[in-house]
Amino acid sequence: MSTPIAWSDARTAVYRRALAQARMKAAEVALSDADGLTLAEPLVARTPLPAFPTASVDGWVVRGTGPWRVVDRVLAGHRAPDLTEDGTAMEIATGAMVPAGATTILRLEHGDLRGDEVAGSPKTEPEWRLPGDECAAGEELLPAGTPISPGVLGLAASCGYDTLLTRHAPRATTVVFGDELLDSGLPGDGRVRDALGPSIPAFLRRLGARTDGFRRVQDTLAAHVDALRQAVAGGSELICTTGGTMHGPVDYLHPALAELGASYVVNTVAVRPGFPMLVAELPGGQFVAGLPGNPQSAMVALVSLVMPLLAGLRGRPFPASEQVTVGATIADRGDYTHLSLVRRDERDGLVYPVGHVGSAMLRGLAQSTGFAVVPPGKAAHPGDRVDLLELP
């Protein structure tokens, strides 16, 4: 076993390595296909917004003092003719271009139209938006790494974008090791139900990866090597494996990585539970995240390493944690960071450790908000503030 790396250092290392990979992979995508992806470059206004003076209300755009003779109409989507004479007006619709020479706008509800003449009392301030009210041409509106939402798409379209330079959702594969695992029925006779095959792909999808379930692999070195090669051939950028991260009689992940020429980004982490986790990089740039076989330990590895890894591959910011207040004591784990499953009490807003949190258990995880992060050598006591990594 290698010397465990500090938990925070491990997370930073995998994020930076993945982000370096993401920077080499960006693609122009039509706005219609960009929802859920990530901006690979800042969104910069290509024009002032609005690009021309724009009416904020329906009514009449007027010049000089009234009453005014209505000489024309301006609708949205048309270039407005100049308003050249005092005492004249044009009917105008919300969003229409305000003609040059206009003094102000008389609201529809404030005007009295009789024949071709309108009278009324306009507000003192012009009721239109000036060019650049929202932004100037060349202004950065959103930074690279921003998730692309419907609002971002609308903003990009309003600025004149037809496509966006994006980072895509990475393709991820889950490979489950363990001849003792069952896919259906009740456990017994030395065999247990597989809890990670159904849950890890769901976790990866919630973190923004594209995944199509999992595949079971026999406990042989040849099967391990073949499974990793097939995942690479299938276009996976991230391969999550379960089990085999130690050096037991059927732990073949390390030998398989060696045979494939992989290099370790992180190999064992000073965290409890789940310290024998790893991230390795294959020669083609694909990542292998080796998760421990015990279910809760695998989930610790997911939030510890896979969460920042996928954030990096997507070009997103480093995953943020939330500061919370502890409502009951959480024990220290010596020189290791302790990731303790906690639930948030809606009545007092505090977080409390849950029960059934053995490495092989998932009952506690199923009722938890996330993991409280307790630094090495410290316990957390009621009233202490700690970081919370929420489960996605």
Rank of each mutant, 00 (worst) to 15 (best):
R215F: 01
L164M: 11
T166L: 02
G213C: 06
C159F: 03
L164S: 06
P147C: 04
V192F: 13
A156K: 06
A209W: 10
T173Q: 13
R206S: 13
R167L: 13
R210C: 09
T173M: 08
A144Y: 07
G190S: 08
G185F: 09
E180M: 04
D183L: 14
P147T: 06
L142W: 07
L155Y: 03
G190L: 11
R167P: 07
G208L: 04
Q218V: 02
P150G: 03
V176H: 08
E180V: 01
D219H: 05
G197D: 07
G154R: 14
R167N: 08
C159I: 01
A202H: 10
V192N: 00
S149F: 10
A156S: 06
G151M: 11
L181H: 10
P201I: 12
T220S: 15
E139T: 15
P147G: 02
F214L: 00
S184R: 14
P150Y: 07
L142T: 01
S199R: 14
L181K: 03
A195F: 12
L141K: 08
G190D: 07
A202G: 09
P201E: 10
R206C: 07
L196R: 03
T166W: 01
P170Y: 09
T166S: 10
C159A: 12
T211E: 06
A172H: 07
A172C: 13
G188P: 08
F203T: 14
Y161W: 10
R215G: 00
V192M: 11
